[in-house]
C-alpha cells in the first residue's frame, strides 16, 4: 500500500503542475439580487463586482444574509429577483465552477480520507492521483487511508479544503469554515488558505464573523447589513498580514465601528482587545 501511494504521489506532482495552468479565477457580477423567504426579506438589493483571482471577505452580524448570498453564488438557492453572472454567464442551478467549504467538514464517515477528497472530483476515472495531490497540498497525504473519525477538527477541515481544491475550481466559497476551530489551528488554516490562493490564483469568497480573519486574508472586506452591502473596503496591507502590521488595528476598528454603529462603544472594544 505504502509503495503504491508513493508511486502515485510522484506522478501526481506532475499532474498538479499541469492543472495549475489550466484554470484561473473567475469573475462575478451580482445584479440587484433579491431573496425573500415568504414575507421575510433576506437579501434586499445586492450589487457586487468581483474580479478574477480576487479574495473577498463578507462580514456582518449573524442573520444579515451573508451566508445566503454565498449559497446563491454556489447555486444552492433560487433568487427571488436579480441574477449572478459568472464570466458573463448567468448561474442557473448548481454552480459547477464553484466549490464550497462549509462550517462543518461534512466528510463522509464511511469513506477513507482519500476517497473523501475523491468526492471533490466526482469519483470520476483517475481521481486517485488528483486526490493524493490535493491531500499533499494540505500536508495530510500520510492520513490517506485513515477513517475521518480518527482525525482532529483541524485535520478534518484540512481534508475538506483538499476536497474543495482537488478539482482545481476557479471559484472557492468559504462559509465560515474556521469558525469551530481553536485559535492556533485557525491561524494555521488561514495561512494555508492564503498560500494556496496565491499559488493557484482562484477567486475566493470568505464569509466570516471574525473581522481580523477577514482583514488578514482579503483584498476587499464587504459588510452586509439587513441584506444589503453597507461598506466595501479595500485592504492594501502587504501580505502576509497579522495584527502587528501597521494599519491593521486601524482597519479592524473601522469595520467594527461600522458594524456596531457607535464610535464610542467601538473604542472600548478595541481598547479591551489590546
Amino acid at each position: 500500500m505504502e509503495i503504491r501511494n508513493r508511486k502515485v504521489l510522484g506522478k501526481s506532482n506532475l499532474c498538479g503542475e499541469q492543472m495549475m495552468q489550466q484554470k484561473k479565477g473567475i469573475n462575478l457580477t451580482i445584479n440587484q439580487l433579491k431573496k425573500y423567504y415568504d414575507q421575510l426579506e433576506v437579501l434586499s438589493d445586492v450589487n457586487l463586482q468581483i474580479a478574477a483571482g480576487e479574495f473577498v471577505a463578507i462580514v456582518g452580524k449573524s442573520g444579515c444574509g451573508k451566508s445566503t448570498l454565498l449559497r446563491h453564488i454556489a447555486g444552492l438557492e433560487q433568487a427571488t429577483a436579480g441574477e449572478i453572472e459568472q464570466n458573463n454567464r448567468v448561474i442557473d442551478g448548481i454552480n459547477r465552477d464553484a466549490r464550497v467549504m462549509f462550517q462543518e467538514a461534512r466528510l463522509l464517515p464511511w469513506q477513507t480520507v482519500l476517497k473523501n477528497v475523491g468526492v471533490g472530483l466526482g469519483m470520476k476515472k483517475g481521481w486517485e492521483e488528483k486526490a493524493l495531490w490535493a491531500l499533499k497540498q494540505v500536508g495530510l497525504e500520510e492520513r490517506a487511508n485513515d477513517w475521518p473519525s480518527v482525525l482532529s477538527g483541524g485535520q478534518k477541515q484540512r481534508v475538506a479544503l483538499a476536497r474543495a481544491l482537488a478539482a482545481r475550481p476557479p471559484l472557492l466559497l468559504l462559509d465560515e469554515p474556521l469558525g469551530a476551530l481553536d485559535a492556533l489551528t485557525r491561524m494555521e488554516m488561514q495561512s494555508l488558505i492564503e498560500e494556496l490562493w496565491k499559488k493557484y490564483k482562484f477567486t475566493a469568497i470568505l464569509v466570516t464573523h471574525d473581522i481580523s480573519e477577514a482583514i488578514t486574508l482579503a483584498d476587499r472586506v464587504i459588510l452586509i447589513e439587513n441584506g444589503a452591502i453597507k461598506m466595501d473596503l479595500k485592504i492594501s496591507l502587504s501580505r502576509p498580514r497579522n495584527r502587528a502590521n501597521h494599519g491593521f488595528a486601524e482597519l479592524e476598528g473601522k469595520v467594527l465601528s461600522r458594524i456596531l454603529g457607535k464610535e464610542e462603544r467601538l473604542k472600548q472594544v478595541v481598547n479591551d482587545q489590546r
Binding site: 447555486g75 461534512r106 468526492v119
Partner: peptide, 11 residues
C-alpha cells in the same frame, strides 16, 4: 448536509 455537499460537488 452530506447530500447537499454531494450535490455541490457535482456527484
Amino acid at each position: 448536509d452530506l447530500i447537499e455537499m454531494g450535490e455541490v460537488y457535482g456527484l
